[in-house]
Write a protein that binds this DNA or RNA. Structure first.
Lengths: 189, 189
DNA sequence: TTTTTAAGGTACGTACTAGTTTCTTATTCG
DNA sequence: CGAATAAGAAACTAGTACGTACCTTAAAAA
């Protein structure tokens, strides 16, 4: 194998970092182990990222970018929500949960928190959520006065909580229960 | 201060260990820092516990035993809930969160033990929650038909989610927001 | 082809921390 | 009081891993 450079090398390193992270967790991931796994050496990594934290952040962001879902449009708020939550539960949920468990040590070290890291790569997703709410408001399904930020994120918070507790995809009945008995009653006019 | 021995010394060490654990997290807790905080030195700790893990284990067990919260009775559902959630946020929240830190270091794969652990600490608390709801129903504050199991646990689920995301005690305003704008509107007659 | 850029390898300095050893000194108990 | 017991302090061993310096060599650019 020839000597890789630039983009290709960087991708290989970040993939290796993600694999180390998911197999061994942040605390046991070493810059050396990532370099070895990527078939290169430490200085190459330090030329790109200032320290271990930055390296892992980049690996997580890259992994996240690889999974981008289009915002659902089913014609009704209920349909949009259930579709989005289901998709979230089946694909993104495990990712986020695993991440949170793997990164506990990172949080302690970076004096950061799950919320802050989540901000890093949930930002784009929020617009999708707002889009769903906006359409529903236009259709008259939502009373805008009732849609506080916390209530807007309520279905997503509950789904995440459920995922973190069970570490499994959330059952369709649970998703429907969240939407029908909790969220919709709170925002309907 | 004279030289402590036996029971008193042991209690001081375990308290110091818990404080270090909740302030700095498992990764940053060092045996030295615990010894210093307790006003003693390392060998004293190693004479009692084989290693760092055993030490922290003992501190966690002690802390859990010390926490038996009486069910609040303020005369109103809102008062009971806010009191309980606040107490939970300030004492149990950090406890459970830090405990999950421990888990990560104990079992590389947390999947099996994560649910088990929660059951251990949640079991006794459920009866307290039911008690609050029962009293509120008797006072006519709650429509029993609306109090599904999921809605009954809703404030607690949201609090836990908030704690896990921020890794900090939850602000009083947030607790009030959860109670006033989400839970109460869903269960009031 | 020559020059420039950056990858790959090795080794090092530094810092931190677990766990141990040794010795002195305070407290308790017979 | 005097002997046994355990606390407190300091230094030490050993291991790990971050981050850097230096040098050689491959690949790209001019």
């Amino acid at each position: 194998m020839g000597r890789r450079r630039g983009e290709a090398l960087e991708a290989a390193i970040l993939d290796a970092a993600w694999e180390e992270l998911s197999e061994r967790g942040y605390a046991h991931l070493t810059v050396d182990s990532v370099a070895r796994r990527a078939g290169t050496s430490k200085p190459v990594l330090y030329r790109r990222w200032a320290d271990k934290q930055k390296l892992v952040e980049a690996a997580v962001v890259r992994r996240n970018d690889a999974q981008v879902a289009p915002p659902a449009d089913t014609g009704s708020l209920r349909g949009d929500l259930i579709a989005t939550l289901t998709e979230l539960s089946e694909t993104r949920g495990p990712f986020l949960t695993q991440l949170s468990l793997l990164l506990v040590d990172y949080f302690a070290e970076a004096e950061s928190s799950f919320a802050e890291l989540r901000e890093m790569f949930v930002a784009g997703r929020r617009s999708g959520r707002d889009e769903i709410m906006r359409r529903a408001t236009e259709r008259g399904e939502i009373d805008p006065a009732k849609l506080t930020p916390r209530i807007a994120s309520l279905p997503f918070d509950l789904l995440r909580g459920e995922t973190m507790m069970t570490l499994r995809p959330v059952a369709p009945e649970v998703i429907e229960e969240i939407v029908d008995t909790i969220f919709l009653p709170l925002v309907r006019r």
